[in-house]
């Protein structure tokens, strides 16, 4: 263990042993809000949770995929199963189909989090009902480093609500839209192939494709900068 932490210290000058101050320095949003959408680095991400109660439940896995503007960078992905610190409840095993046994040899959040932070850098975070994921992520960061994410963040659910109400080109293209709000109903409505195997990464990928479509129609309706997006979809 001491060898690994030594290596960690030496090899990662930028980050070192993450303490709260450094996290704040490194991850505070440096992206300008007037960045054109086409140049904007996004990370679409999703977590699987053992439940919805942030006090009792925990992150089981994290999946994320990068985008540059409307282009999905297929090969820039992040996916990690996380070994929980606490006991996994019977219920959470049933929901995710991930058994404690599968997680035994996985890293705990203490190891995964720095990697995740390295992956996202100062990208704009995107997710469907992202606030839940952010809540768990920030809670973990608070536990470990007494800090939280400073990245700008967008919620595809809010963006969809806006498009559904106001998107002229969008409504014309899809002849209306979906009144449903869950990721998979929306995805299917807009012609995205949904794999039956759900995990955090596949869900992030579906969200990314949804976001990709939304960006096109937002652009057609005159939204050109990150700020325009934040106005309608800030998480």
């Amino acid at each position: 263990m001491s060898f690994l932490s030594d290596f960690f210290n030496k090899s990662s000058k930028k980050k070192g042993n993450i303490d709260s101050k450094e996290v704040a320095d490194t991850w505070s949003g440096t992206i300008k809000k007037d960045t054109p959408i086409a140049e904007c680095p996004f990370v679409v991400f999703d977590t699987e949770l053992s439940g919805l109660d942030v006090r009792k439940d925990f992150i089981v896995s994290i999946g994320a995929i990068k985008m540059t503007g409307g282009t999905i960078n297929i090969s820039r992905e992040f996916y990690r199963l996380v070994r929980p610190d606490g006991e996994m409840s019977k219920k959470s095993v049933e929901i995710h189909g991930i058994t404690p046994g599968e997680l035994v040899d996985k890293e705990n959040l203490g190891t995964v989090l720095p990697d995740f932070l390295e992956f996202i850098k100062d990208s704009v975070l995107v997710g469907h009902f992202l606030n839940i994921d952010l809540k768990f992520m920030n809670s973990a960061l608070k536990d470990k480093y007494n800090d939280k994410l400073a990245n700008l963040a967008l919620d595809t659910h809010s963006i969809h609500e806006w498009l559904y109400a106001n998107g002229v080109t969008f409504k014309k293209h899809y002849l209306g839209g979906s009144t449903k709000t869950d990721l998979f109903s929306i995805a299917q409505r807009y012609g995205i192939t949904v794999d039956t195997a759900h995990d955090a990464l596949n869900d992030a990928y579906v969200t990314a494709q949804l976001f990709q479509r939304f960006l096109y129609f937002l652009h057609a309706d005159g939204m050109h900068t990150l700020n325009d997006l934040l106005d309608i979809g800030r998480a």
Binding site: T71, N73, Q212, Y216
Partner: peptide, 14 residues
Amino acid sequence: IAGNLSMEFCPKNT
């Protein structure tokens, strides 16, 4: 190739 792939969306008629 797979390691450097990205994906683009083009709606009908664009």
